[in-house]
Design a protein around this nucleic acid. Structure first.
Length: 152
DNA sequence: GCCAACGTTGGC
DNA sequence: GCCAACGTTGGC
């Protein structure tokens, strides 16, 4: 079992949107960065993920979800109406990947980016490394536990 | 809106 | 394959 952090803009897909469909999986589409895509490829069914709200007022980890379907071609890349459409991609050789995730929990209080930065246990978290803008990144087992503790 | 820190593109 | 120009991310 592995742990991950997925960034999302809550205006697009928030922890509340996930919570609103506790049974139906959410298609995690639109990742358009090769390094992030390569992490998607390493995700397995059952892996747990932090849902991180970015580009918004309350920045931080809002809750957790679980991978319910491992990697498959991102349907949005084939859809001309989608903002994630990629004309250079084809069904024969898709460029981009998606996974499905299902809601697990919303933290009673969002764990802010400030609190994450202030935690010595999280100083190596990829999220707070200088210049890291990946929307999909790995989280170690220790970091996973540390964040859960801080979110209590 | 600013801007640092990237990633991507395309001419050469 | 180099690299300048350009685009994007995302916190502030």
């Amino acid at each position: 079992m592995n742990y991950w952090l997925l960034k999302t803009e809550p205006a697009e897909c928030s922890i509340d949107d996930l919570a609103a469909q506790p049974i139906e999986p959410m298609v995690w589409e639109g990742v358009r960065n090769y390094q992030a895509r390569n992490f998607l490829r390493q995700m397995h069914e059952g892996d747990e993920v932090f849902v991180y709200h970015s580009s918004c007022k309350l920045i931080g980890v809002a809750g957790t979800a679980r991978v319910s379907r491992s990697v498959y071609p991102d349907p949005a890349q084939f859809d001309p109406k989608s903002p994630y459409f990629d004309p250079k991609s084809s069904r024969d050789s898709p460029r981009w990947e998606a996974v499905d995730v299902v809601f697990v929990q919303k933290f009673s209080q969002l764990l802010s980016l400030d609190a994450i930065k202030a935690s010595p246990a999280l100083e190596d978290l990829a999220l707070v490394k200088k210049g890291n803008r990946l929307s999909v990144m790995p989280v170690s087992a220790n970091e996973w536990q540390a964040i859960l503790e801080l979110a209590k």
